[in-house]
């Protein structure tokens, strides 16, 4: 399972970089979304994959008797997803505004702020 997820994460990172290097600003957004998904999956995988062992202490017990899933990476991923969602939502609105003010969806056209006067 780890190997499969590792390949998936690598694929996501690769396609994120590919998408971000395209000139269309829409594809750039898609690239950013892939990037945040790849990061979330990476944290999730690196915390160790344990199936079907919830980190809940049974009634009458005082501790875990055998191995359980680590809840912390899940909490981290949850936080990262929420933050990523907010930021991506903002970015999509920004892209829309950029498109309206600049009138182009091509990153090559966005050179005005780099020009030397």
């Amino acid at each position: 399972m780890e190997t499969l997820l590792a390949i998936l994460i690598g694929g996501l990172f690769g396609s994120a970089v590919y998408m971000m290097l395209r000139r269309s600003i829409i594809k750039l957004i898609i690239g950013l979304i892939f990037l945040s998904h790849a990061c979330n999956l990476l944290i999730f995988t690196i915390g160790g994959l344990v199936r079907g062992k919830a980190p809940i202490i049974d009634e009458g017990q005082t501790g875990f008797s055998n191995m359980v899933a680590d809840p912390l990476p899940q909490a981290l991923v949850l936080t990262a997803i929420v933050i990523g969602f907010g930021v991506i939502a903002f970015t999509i609105v920004l892209i829309e505004q950029v498109y309206q003010t600049v009138g182009a969806g091509d990153t090559d056209e966005l050179k005005a702020s780099d020009k030397t006067i």
Binding site: M20, I25, F90, T91, L94, V98, L110, S113
Partner: peptide, 11 residues
């Protein structure tokens, strides 16, 4: 100009 600058900064 601002929108372009923000776009680069955000990305």
């Amino acid at each position: 100009l601002q929108m372009e600058g923000t776009f680069k900064y955000v990305t």
